[in-house]
Design a protein around this nucleic acid. Structure first.
Length: 828
RNA sequence: GCACCAGUACCUUAAUCGGUGAAAGGGCCGGUCUUAAACACCGGUAAUCCGGGUUCGAGCCCCGGCUGGUGCACCA
């Protein structure tokens, strides 16, 4: 028998060539062919091309490719495209260091990503490839911006915004982490008052929240989005400062506690603070306090355990429900960015207000009592933040449960013109302008006479000009491109200046999945027919780190574009799968730790099939997985054994011998093997549907174990069937080696074969081992027919020798019969 | 502090409706093959975090605790 050696490199390049020359994975737009339900759009989040792909990319695309292959084999037309999120800071920072144009380094990175994706054998439709930095793409990003501008969804305003001193640009709220650090570089951000471009995502808060119900996404991602939108119901209530004649609205979720408001607090950033303190004895201390707080980081200020600080403003406001004059304070526990930047303080029923009142010796008045009497020992302890019954309020409100009191009081305030029901959101509008070079230019002009002027559609794209110096200086490097900046106003012909800020790169990636449907269209961003054919995405795959950023922005874009009549769906991604991280020695891979495993070196050593199978076999793909070289070896051995046994079997069968059918009338070891193959079909099909790739691969391992074990006792044709089935089932995970095995055994192409069907009859056994228990303990086992009745099973069990020994002299008081499994006799 | 998820052999995972004496791969040990080793093949090894409860029966359900992870957190 000749030597059979598994040579992954030879096999992988051979099949990759076939797929490339035959354009196997390309999907054409056929409009009415088959209808949307027979199509499938499988998409992984587009990569940011920087250097080389890392192991996380391998995992993401291994998952996506398995799904894409599975859908194709189920008979669907699959769209599985690839592109690059090519604008962004790393390329620009590289340019600052080296002077090399970002276009050049970006092109190099893209080439390297392409090369590796091809070497992994991912079934990508390369004909639709795009990159967001190409004018043919960002022309339409600009078009969308203008559409949003035209409808008022893109606007300029001056606001307190987050500024990253390291990257020298403003950031969106979402791009600052909980500690107040820049999402990209980790620098503490500062707050600056600047005029910037915003997108009105807050208009969509309610829909972004409600429509989460419509989509099949992981619970934790939905929860994060809900938290980020941060909806709370309550009321806006006006407190009037009589001395200065100014009304201050506050937002509260507890209007039922209004009678317990004993003071009033403003955020240090509140624009009226200095004016209020002016001329009072507190003027100086207020100014000092405000200065100190403004210089504190979010990290310092945001700590709830920190003792409460603040100073009196020396003014009072009127509590609208009882006319009381209550003192005003400025304190840093009140945030300018939430609500109105001022609060009513109810120390008896709010932990923070309580802490402040204790520190400043302010009155604490209980207005809510826990319902159902105070039998609980801690019912009298303040602050009490739960619901209850009103006390110490107004005669007609006292005794009302909190919930009812909320609506009663709000109704009364409304009538009096002192307040109204209100819903508040944590979500802020999306700040999209950036003072950086390598991004999509914002297509806007400033004309002295016409003001803010959108660039006419027929002048798109506004091309990104070349510049000499990429260094950010607090304004975009584009400002230095005088020839480009100075232009003429399209409406009046006078001289005008271009907007020099570029767009947040998250704008680019908020619509790329639409462009894939119609990538060559140069008359429009897409045609409605193309979208009808593919959108929404059936299965989206990516890292959970985009739970809020990209995934929220993309949802917002679709809703806004749908409102503008450009889309006829509301949600871009019907189903989402978030893959877990790949760690090494329990820690995140990073250059500084020196624990980076490069996909290229793994592919070089053991081949792409092993790399892909390993990353999917190592554990459930939604969980983190620790990289282990020994585990890689194990999977490599498995593929070697599979290939060798298949090659040897093909030879014994006399070469490729055509399509293979499940053998009929098999007996003995042949039947065992045929059954195992059908069991594997059932198992892998189910596992693929629920993303349990690890167990799917384990099932094929089991099938291979039986093939090896029964190599000499089962018929060659049975072997051929079992191994063909193994290759067919493993193909979504290890496409090259499975294509090769399938070809050797049958002469056919596995990717053109239908997904196999399990024969129900072969899955059922006509006999099984019945477990016989006495008092829940296993005492014996007997063979039982599958169709035996409960009574027969009981008799069988009672007759079992070891059971009889345990029944001796005892009385059976209960019998539990589980057909197909066991009989349990309870005796006394 | 609150919420969610997870704790199974040395490691990583599996166990569908609560139903056998808990399965797979890797590791390790031994054997066959080899001059020797690698590969391959055969065999062996070892576990339900702790404490209660429900049940004829619990890895699985309920309560409490411990450990780890993730998210939220001065959001009025």
């Amino acid at each position: 028998m000749p030597e059979h050696r598994y040579d992954p490199h030879e096999i992988e390049s051979r099949w990759q060539d076939v797929w490339a020359t035959e354009h196997t994975w390309e999907a054409t737009n056929e409009h009415d062919a088959g209808g949307r339900s027979s199509n499938s759009y499988v998409l992984e989040m587009l990569p940011y091309p920087s250097g080389e792909p890392h192991i996380g990319h391998l995992k993401c695309y291994a998952v996506g490719d398995a799904i894409a292959h599975f859908h194709r084999r189920l008979g669907r037309r699959v769209l599985h495209p690839m592109g690059y999120d090519a604008f962004g800071l790393p390329a620009e920072n590289h340019a600052i260091r080296t002077g090399e144009h970002p276009r050049v380094s970006t092109a190099e990175s893209i080439a390297s990503f392409q090369r590796q994706f091809r070497s992994w054998g991912i079934s990508i439709d390369w004909s639709r490839e795009l990159a967001t930095h190409e004018p043919s793409y960002y022309r339409w990003t600009q078009w969308i911006f203008l559409e949003l501008f035209g409808s008022g969804l893109a606007y300029r305003k001056e606001a307190a915004v987050k500024w990253c001193p390291h990257d020298q640009t403003v950031l969106a709220n979402e791009q600052v982490d909980a500690e107040g650090r820049c999402e990209r570089c980790g620098t503490l951000v500062e707050v600056r008052q600047l005029e910037q471009w915003f997108l009105r995502i807050t208009d969509y808060a309610e829909r972004l929240l409600n429509d989460l119900q419509e989509i099949d996404w992981p619970q934790n991602v939905k929860t994060m989005q809900r938290n980020w939108v941060g909806r709370s119901e309550g009321a806006e209530v006006t407190f009037r400062c009589e001395e200065l004649g100014i009304d201050y609205p506050v937002f509260t979720t507890r209007p039922d506690t209004l009678f317990g408001a004993t003071f009033f607090v403003m955020a240090p950033e509140h624009p009226d603070v200095s004016r209020l303190a002016q001329g009072t004895e507190h003027e100086h201390s207020v100014r000092e306090y405000v200065n100190v707080s403004l210089n504190e980081t979010n990290e310092q200020r945001g700590n709830a355990d920190k003792p409460k600080t603040g100073v009196a403003l020396g003014r009072t406001v009127t509590n609208p429900v009882n006319g009381e004059q209550i003192p005003m304070y400025v304190a840093d526990y009140v945030l300018m960015e939430y609500g109105t930047g001022a609060i009513m303080a109810v120390p008896a029923h709010d932990e923070r207000d309580h802490a402040f009142a204790r520190a400043f010796d302010l009155p604490i008045r209980r207005v809510i009592e826990p319902a159902g009497g105070s039998d609980a020992a801690d019912a009298d302890v303040l602050p009490y933040t739960g619901d209850g019954v009103l006390v110490n309020s107004r005669a007609d409100f006292d005794g009302l449960p909190s919930r009812e009191a909320v609506s009663e009081i709000v109704r009364w305030l409304d009538v009096e013109g002192k307040g109204h029901a209100s819903i508040n959101y944590k979500l802020r509008d999306w700040l999209v302008s950036r003072q950086r070079y390598w991004g999509t230019p914002i297509p806007i002009l400033y004309c002295d006479s016409c003001g803010v002027v959108p660039v006419p559609y027929d002048q798109l794209p506004v091309q990104l000009p070349d510049v000499e110096d990429y260094t950010p200086k607090g304004r975009s490097p584009l400002a230095a491109a005088e020839d480009w900046v100075n232009t003429t106003c399209p409406s009046c012909g006078a001289s005008a200046r271009r907007e020099t800020d570029t767009m947040d790169t998250f704008v680019d990636s908020s619509w790329y999945f639409l462009r894939y449907c119609d990538p060559f269209n140069d008359l429009a961003a897409w045609s409605p027919e193309a979208l009808r054919e593919w959108m929404p995405v059936d299965q989206y795959i990516g890292g959970v780190e985009h739970a809020i950023l990209h995934l929220m922005y993309a949802r917002f874009f679709c809703k806004a574009l749908a409102d503008l009549g450009h889309l006829d769906f509301q949600e871009p991604f019907n189903a989402l799968f978030t893959q877990g991280m790949v760690t090494k020695d329990g820690a995140k891979m990073s250059k500084s730790r020196g624990n980076v495993v490069s996909p290229a070196s793994i592919v070089e050593r053991v081949g792409a099939d092993t790399a892909r199978c390993y990353i999917l076999f190592v554990g459930p793909p939604d969980q983190d997985a620790d990289w282990s070289d020994a585990g890689v070896e194990g999977v490599h051995r498995f593929l070697s054994r599979l290939w060798r046994l298949a090659a040897e079997t093909a030879e014994r069968a006399g070469g490729p011998s055509g399509p293979v059918e499940s053998p009929i009338g098999a007996e003995g070891d042949d039947l065992v093997l045929v059954r195992k193959a059908h069991w594997a079909i059932e198992k892998v099909s189910g596992d693929l549907r629920r993303f349990a790739f690890n167990t799917a691969i384990a099932a094929v391992m089991e099938l291979l174990n039986d093939c090896s074990r029964l190599r000499d006792s089962a018929d060659v044709e049975t072997q051929r069937f079992a191994l063909t089935t193994a290759a067919s089932l493993l193909f979504p995970f290890a496409p090259h080696v499975c294509a090769d095995i399938y070809d050797r055994l049958t002469g056919e192409r596995v990717w053109e074969a239908d997904w196999p069907n399990a024969d129900e009859e072969l899955l059922e056994r006509d006999e099984y081992e019945l477990v016989c228990q006495v008092n829940g303990k296993l005492r014996d086992r007997v063979r039982a027919a599958s169709n035996a009745s409960a009574d027969e099973l009981k008799q069988l069990c009672m007759a079992a020798p070891n059971v009889r020994a345990h029944l001796d002299g005892k009385q059976v008081v209960k019998e539990i019969v589980v057909p197909g499994k066991l009989v349990n006799l309870v005796v006394r």
